[in-house]
Design a protein around this nucleic acid. Structure first.
Length: 427
RNA sequence: GCGGCUGUAGCUCAAUAGGUUAGAGCACCUGGUUGUGGCCCAGGAGGUUGCGGGUUCAAAUCCCGUCAGUCGCCCCA
């Protein structure tokens, strides 16, 4: 065992895995641009109150999952457990209410939650986050969902579907929760320890219980759709009609209740059948019409969503979707002797300044060893310099991919020769 | 925060019912070629068997603790 190991629940993203990350980031920028979303990057930590108040004091995230620490100045800071609260804080702080509305923003970066790690769940994990702030039309809810869908399509991810629900608003949800709590209270004896605790803290969550023995209770429990106010109902129905219009498969899931307090009206998740168990949600989001006010801004509607990058990669691997390979250096410089080494160092600089990737191997290894290294770097050409070449002012060029005779190229034209030879070649 | 399973070389794994210098494949280094990669061959380096304690004549192996990984619960991406 090494003396030091990475903290529990964190990962080193090694070179071999970077092709996925580059590809996903590239597709994110592309799809976000198609929808007119602009990138914003907020700090990785914020004043603790931003999350405590924004996400909600009663949530699991705030109660037991935040990385909170005292700043040297005495204030309390927290590593972001999610993006939305920070982005809405930035909206308010930067006066974005005077920008053309809605303000459509996206971010990519790590978030932190002190959970117990398990498959596809880590303490530091990356998210792609998108927010549309300042618009209440359900068409913008659809737009965010559509953006999510298009991203997966662009990545070659299939077999996904939406789960949607309406959780009501500040006007109608309290009544529903009251009714729900009253209902479960009548059957408290049948609830397990977990669900009894939820009865007090968050009765909505009982709907998602894993306890099979109370399925009949869940079935007969009050349904949110019978309690939402006219405004929420119309919002939801319109959203569903837009989804129908786009032909996107969805399931209305009356038990979908997300664990952040700020959601109002629309909540949704994207599920992938490629991931088993509890981690079938690869992204999720919803509307948060009350959040800006909670954070000290003017009442401002908003809707957003977050996709887990690690889960996205898992799905790609499950489905055997391969990202394009990263480009690697295209030539290796092989030297024999000190004079040639100096000539190679100069040539390498010249090649790189002309956008030709070039690598060398130091500590004066044998030619054979240099050739082996060149092979492992997947270069297209090995450029060989020794006393003979120096004398004649030429470079010996060996094609490492095609089985053709080695060539001798004049030093003065080697750059243009390579430019032509490498044209169209990814190596 | 709770529970199951697992910790042997960089990686994947061996090591009869506890028994002597803990092995192999891959990867790495060197050589087989005074200046030519892949394939092949030869050699080399690499381990306080996660850590600590206990049982035993003897522990990688059994027991306890601890740490870590992994899977699951809660919750979520």
């Amino acid at each position: 065992m090494p003396q030091y190991q990475r903290p529990t629940g964190t990962n080193d993203i090694l070179p071999d895995e970077q092709a996925y990350w580059h590809y996903i980031f590239d597709r994110i920028h592309h799809v976000a641009a198609l929808y007119g979303y602009q990138q914003i990057e907020t700090p990785i930590f914020e004043d603790t109150a931003v999350f405590a108040r924004g996400v909600g004091e009663g949530t699991d995230i705030v109660q037991k999952e935040m990385y909170t620490f005292e700043d040297r100045g005495g204030g309390s800071l927290t590593l972001r457990p999610e993006f939305t609260a920070g982005v809405v804080r930035a909206y308010i702080e930067n006066g974005m209410k005077v920008w053309p509305q809605p303000v459509k923003l996206y971010s990519i970066g790590p978030a932190f939650r002190h959970d117990r790690p398990q498959a596809n769940r880590y303490r530091q994990f990356w998210q792609f986050n998108a927010e549309a702030i300042g618009e209440q039309d359900p068409a913008i809810d659809l737009e965010i969902m559509s953006l999510a869908w298009d991203l997966y399509t662009a990545l070659g991810i299939t077999e996904i579907s939406f789960q949607v629900n309406s959780t009501g608003c500040s006007k109608c949800r309290p009544t529903y929760i009251e009714q729900l709590a009253a209902f479960f209270a009548q059957h408290e004896g049948r609830l397990d320890e977990n669900d009894q605790r939820r009865l007090a803290s968050n009765p909505l969550r009982i709907l998602d219980t894993k306890d099979a023995s109370i399925q009949d209770l869940i079935e007969s429990a009050p349904n949110i759709s019978d309690y939402v106010c006219d405004e929420c109902r119309e919002h939801f129905d319109t959203l569903l009609s837009y989804l129908d219009l786009q032909g996107r498969p969805y399931t209305i899931n009356p038990r979908l209740v997300r664990g952040l307090d700020y959601y109002t009206k629309t909540v949704f998740e994207v599920w992938s059948s490629a991931l088993g168990g509890a981690q079938s949600a690869i992204s999720g989001g919803g509307r948060y019409d009350g959040l800006a006010e909670v954070l000290g801004g003017e009442p401002t509607p908003g809707v957003g969503y977050a996709a887990g990058i690690e889960r996205t990669i898992s799905v790609m691997q499950e489905l055997d979707v391969r990202p394009p390979e990263l480009t690697s250096p295209r030539v290796a410089l092989i030297y024999l002797g000190d004079a040639a080494k100096r000539a190679c160092i100069a040539l390498a600089s010249e090649l790189r300044s002309r956008d030709i990737g070039a690598v060398m191997f130091f500590d004066d290894p044998s030619m054979r060893s240099q050739m082996r290294s060149a092979d492992r770097e997947d270069v297209r050409y090995a450029l060989i310099l020794g006393d003979r070449e120096l004398e004649q002012d030429v470079v010996a060029v060996k094609d490492m991919v095609k089985d053709v005779a080695q060539q001798t190229i004049e030093r003065g034209v080697i750059v243009s020769w390579l430019k032509e030879g490498l044209n169209g070649s990814r190596q």
